[in-house]
Design a protein around this nucleic acid. Structure first.
Lengths: 196, 196
DNA sequence: GTCTATAGCCTGATAGAC
DNA sequence: GTCTATCAGGCTATAGAC
């Protein structure tokens, strides 16, 4: 929010682009991604479809750009978790970090749960970073993990992401939702509750 | 499978319809629902688009018809669970029944995970039966369930469905997958392992 | 660099002829 | 019952004005 252009060397170029992403997010939230046409975005901006096409070559590029903040945060969480020494710390860091990202960007997640399904948009590959969804599962499962552990890890990621974006819990405040989602992860991954 | 027409009083009418559903399922599995056009279905059948429209008024009707066997089974599970006397029995019956349906129809579930997300196609309303996804959650949560229980139940349904349809576990045999998915549900819902 | 105008091709969907 | 012809609307693409 507050996309202040400040004094960027690129000048007003970012202006239309960010304005476009803003209204795109608004329309996506309102009508879903598939339910939002480029025409609607163009009309809301007061420009033509071709003007939209100039900034983003495809509709998917717009969706990716909208999702980027959340994916970027999640990527940082994964990298931080990888740098942890002990395996228990890796799992705990990843779990809490994942839940934080989900809670923080739950509006975004609710959006992508509508059209794609989470495993496709969150767990799959991201622009640049090769499939970092697998990296998340690798850390959670561990080197000596069996099938049971793999199923549990998979269910944890899917359950947390889908539940975090569920409209039923949209009114819950961040802290409460985070605590309950953490509980889901801890039950499935067998991590004890941290002393606070 | 083995859609034997047998001797139906309606004559050869069912023939084209079932043939259509068969190829539709095949194409859906291959390219996803959104990725399959009516043109592709018509071409694969050797007919025109309008011929397809004669049997199904809309593309969604085809998808619903393809998903119907699984939804029908799930509905029976819910009704059976409702008839159970004690609440623990209701939860156990629903959990095992849900896992059974997921495992049995995992190809179908994998299909709908791709385009909709499970909570939209499995948990939402079904032709005729009003939103029976809520009925599932009601039973799992129970009359005196708090928010923590609601989040756990939601995560259990989502986690089981998405994990059951995940391609990573497609090669697993039914019994193994069922056991691990049951474990997920038991951990989240706090049900002890049944003595076998 | 930024946008308008226009067009191509495909989709789901309808109306009406055999 | 089945198909031809046709429609409005979607995304993608190019040409050219400022």
């Amino acid at each position: 929010m507050t996309a202040g252009p400040a004094t960027v060397s690129t000048g007003g170029q970012e202006d239309t682009r960010t304005r476009l992403l803003g209204t795109a997010l608004r329309l996506f939230t309102e009508h879903g991604v598939e339910g939002t046409s480029l025409q609607m975005i163009a009309d809301a901006l007061g420009v033509t479809k071709a003007a939209v096409y100039y900034h983003f070559k495809t509709k998917n590029e717009i969706a990716e750009a909208v999702a980027e903040p959340g994916l970027k945060e999640l990527n940082e969480v994964v990298e931080e978790a990888t740098r942890q020494r002990r395996r228990g710390q890796q799992v705990d860091h990843l779990l809490t970090g994942f839940v934080d990202v989900v809670v923080h960007h739950r509006a975004l997640i609710a959006l992508f749960n509508r059209d794609h399904g989470v495993l496709r948009s969150v767990t799959k590959s991201w622009a640049g970073e090769e499939n970092f969804g697998e990296r998340i599962l690798e850390i959670l499962i561990g080197p000596d993990g069996d099938v049971n552990r793999a199923v549990a890890a998979h269910a944890a990621i899917a359950g947390i992401a889908l539940t975090g974006g569920a409209p039923e819990f949209a009114e819950l405040d961040d802290d409460t939702l985070r605590e309950h989602l953490l509980d889901v992860g801890r039950k499935l991954l067998g991590r004890p509750r941290r002393v606070s």
